[in-house]
Design a binder for these strands. Structure first.
Lengths: 219, 219
DNA sequence: TTTTACCAAGTTGTCGACAATCTAGTCTTA
DNA sequence: TAAGACTAGATTGTCGACAACTTGGTAAAA
C-alpha cells in the first residue's frame, strides 16, 4: 500500500491526456490543426496506443474531432461555436444554481460568502485580479454545490475545458469585472434564501451577459 | 468509391461499440456487471484493442465506469441516478425547445404537426402505441430542430441512450399516454407561434411530469 | 486469534509490427 | 485540356505478446 494516498492510479495515458488537453486549451497546439499519432508518439515518447487512448478521451471532451481512417483534428473555434457553447452553459449552469439553492449546506454557503469577500478585497487592492481565477472558482463551487454527480461531471470534465479554450484563445478578459462581481453577489444571496427560481434565473442572465460581452468583441 | 453512399467509414470498433451499447441499454449485459476485456474479445471475435476502444466510448456516454488497472463496470441504476438524469434532461431539452422555437423552419414545423396527427390516429386505433417510439420520435425532432450542433450531440449521442437504458430496464410504459400527447401538442403550438419562453417552459414541465410519474412507480 | 507480509493467478496497460484505408500525384484517355 | 484510373507513400486500424498492477489467499509472526 504505497500509493494509498493517491486513491487512484495514474496511467501513462492519463498523463498524456492531461498534457495534450492543456496544450490544446492553451493554444500550444493550434485550433483546427491535425493530430498525427506517430508525431505525438515520438514527441511524448510513448507508444501509439497511449496516444490513441488520449485522443479518444479528448474526443469525448469535444476538444478534437476524429474521422475513421483519416485522423483527428483539434476543433476549430468559431463565433457560432462559442454561442452554441454558451447556450449549453446557460442551460446547465442555470440548473446547477437552482439545485445549489436547494442542496448546498449552510457551511458551503458561508464559505461561498467568504470567497466573495476575499475577492472583493483583491479587486480593491489590485483592480484587475477577478476575471480569471476568481470567476472560475465561483462557478466551480456552485457547480459542486448542486450535488448532481452527472451534472457535475458534464460541466467539469467536459464543457469547462472548452469554455476555457475559447477564453484563452480568443483573448477574453475585458472589463465587466465589477459588474460580474455584483451579479455573483446576487446569485449567492438567492442561494442563501433558498430561492431556486431566482438563483437559476440570475445565473442564466449572468452567463447570457458574459456571452453578449464576448460576442460583441468578436464581431 | 464503393461506399460513397455511407459518407463515413465504419470500423470494427464502431460496430463493436454499437453492439455493446445495445446490449447494455437493453439489459442483456446486466447493470453493474463487470466488462472483462478478454471475455468480450473472444465473444465478439475481435482483438482486445477493439474492445478497449469500444469500452472507452461507452465510458464517454456514461454507460460504463472505468477504473485504472481494475476494469470497467456497467453503471448501476438507482432512483437517485434517474432523478439526476432527468434534471439534466429538463435543462437541456428545455433549451432545445427554446432554440427550436427560434430556429425551426416552417417546413419542419409542418412536418412536426403531421407527426402528431399520425400519432393521434394510431392512438385512436391501437390505443397504446404512443409511449415508446412516438415519444422518442417527437423529442428527437425537437432536439434536431434546435440547430445547435453541440447540444444535439450531447443529447443524441450521450444522454438519450442513458434515458433509454433506464426506461427499458426499470420497465416504464405506464399510462400518461394521452396526457403526454396533449403536452406535445401544446409544445408544438408554442414553437409554431415562435414563443421561445413558453416552448422552453412547457418542455421542462413535460419532462418534470414524466420524471414524477416514473419516480412514483419506483418508490 | 489477529495482523502483517508475501505470493500466485488473473486482469489491465503498453508496446511494436502488420493490415487496411486514405491522399496526392502521375498517367492515360476522351 | 479535363476527367478518370492507377500507383506509391503515409496514416490509421487491428492484432498478439509482454509488462505492470490488483486481488485474494496462504503462511509467518505477534
Amino acid at each position: 500500500m504505497f500509493n494509498s494516498q493517491l486513491e487512484q492510479a495514474i496511467t501513462s495515458s492519463d498523463k498524456t491526456f492531461i498534457k495534450l488537453r492543456y496544450a490544446i486549451v492553451e493554444g500550444e497546439i493550434a485550433a483546427g490543426s491535425k493530430l498525427s499519432e506517430a508525431e505525438l508518439s515520438t514527441k511524448y515518447t510513448v507508444s501509439r496506443a497511449v496516444i490513441r487512448e488520449a485522443i479518444n478521451r479528448l474526443e469525448s471532451c469535444h476538444l478534437v474531432e476524429r474521422k475513421a481512417n483519416v485522423g483527428a483534428r483539434v476543433v476549430s473555434l468559431s463565433p457560432n461555436g462559442l454561442v452554441e457553447l454558451y447556450q449549453i452553459r446557460e442551460s446547465l449552469e442555470g440548473m446547477a444554481a437552482r439545485l445549489a439553492a436547494k442542496n448546498m449546506t449552510s457551511n458551503e454557503i458561508e464559505e461561498l460568502n467568504q470567497l466573495l469577500e476575499s475577492h472583493a478585497n483583491k479587486v480593491e487592492q489590485e483592480g484587475s485580479y477577478y476575471q480569471e481565477a476568481g470567476d472560475v472558482d465561483f462557478h466551480y463551487r456552485i457547480i459542486l454545490g448542486c450535488k448532481n454527480k452527472q451534472l457535475i461531471s458534464l460541466l467539469v470534465d467536459g464543457i469547462y475545458h472548452l469554455v476555457r479554450m475559447y477564453r484563452v484563445q480568443l483573448g477574453m478578459s475585458g472589463p465587466r469585472i465589477t459588474t460580474a462581481f455584483d451579479e455573483h453577489k446576487h446569485i449567492v444571496s438567492a442561494i442563501q434564501n433558498r430561492d431556486e427560481e431566482l438563483a437559476e434565473m440570475l445565473m442564466r442572465r449572468h452567463i447570457m451577459y458574459s456571452k453578449n460581452n464576448i460576442a460583441n468583441k468578436l464581431v
